[in-house]
């Protein structure tokens, strides 16, 4: 950390400690991902590959969840990619803070997740943003992958996933991810509609597709709620006619 004075160095160490703490906390959650991954029918290698290569928790849980409910791995992949959209928005917020280019940016991109974003925004300097991003990103990456392998091996050794209630654990894991988002009325409506759409399609559509169909609910409500929100900041599409033509 060249160019950082003593005060900055102390603060830098504090930021690194915070990042490591976040990594340890998510490690516990990686244990459950590993166990659920093998319970859903993937092998240990495939479960580990998801954590290593996909490295975004909700998408990984979605992939194994779809496979566990009998869906095709391709439906799982599509659901995972749809859930990954929010990392794109995190990237937009991070780009002006981190200001990395080329290979550094390509490497950093893999670490763009909830935790690294949270530890990077709201810092005072670019250097602190980078330290926050890297310490949380790397700590989570290391512990998440380690915990996944341990959880997957334990899950394999423990026996029949249904006897252990691991099929119920998958639903609970999704609920825990969803829970903090259920405060707003719009989100509650979307959640309810998505449940109705998905359950309505289960008897008639191939496994995996009912979940993908629920994405349509999000898109429709997103479009419809546009007109209903008077506080919205005008975007480029709201320019008077004669401006932008689409």
């Amino acid at each position: 950390m060249s160019g950082v004075g003593d005060g900055g160095g102390l603060r830098g160490r504090a930021i690194v400690r915070e990042g490591v703490a976040v990594g340890v906390a998510t490690g516990a959650y990686g244990l459950s991902f590993g166990a659920i991954g093998v319970a859903s029918g993937l092998d240990v290698w495939q479960t580990a590959a998801l954590s290593l290569l996909m490295f975004t928790g909700a998408s990984q849980f979605a992939f194994v969840g779809v496979v566990a409910s009998g869906g095709s791995p391709w439906s799982g992949a599509a659901t995972a990619v749809l859930l990954g959209t929010r990392n794109g928005l995190y990237g937009l917020r991070l780009a002006p803070l981190l200001r990395w280019t080329g290979l550094q940016r390509a490497g950093a991109a893999h670490l763009v997740i909830d935790e690294s974003t949270a530890m990077s925004v709201n810092r005072e300097t670019a250097e602190e943003s980078r330290v926050g991003f890297l310490s949380a990103g790397l700590a989570v990456f290391a512990l998440w992958n380690l915990a996944t392998v341990v959880g997957a091996l334990a899950g394999t050794a423990l026996g029949d996933p249904e006897d252990l209630g691991l099929d119920a654990a998958v639903g609970a894991a999704f609920l825990a991810l969803l829970w903090p988002r259920l405060r707003s009325r719009t989100n509650q409506v979307v959640a309810l509609l998505a449940v109705v759409v998905a359950l309505g399609l289960v008897p008639v559509a191939p496994a995996g597709t009912p979940v993908l169909a629920a994405a349509v609910v999000a898109i429709l409500v997103g479009v419809v709620s546009r007109a209903a929100d008077p506080t919205e900041v005008p975007g480029p599409d709201d320019l008077p006619s004669g401006g932008v033509h689409r």
Partner: peptide, 8 residues
């Protein structure tokens, strides 16, 4: 909204 719909 996507995560809300997909997770539900």
């Amino acid at each position: 909204l996507l995560p809300v719909a997909l997770l539900s």
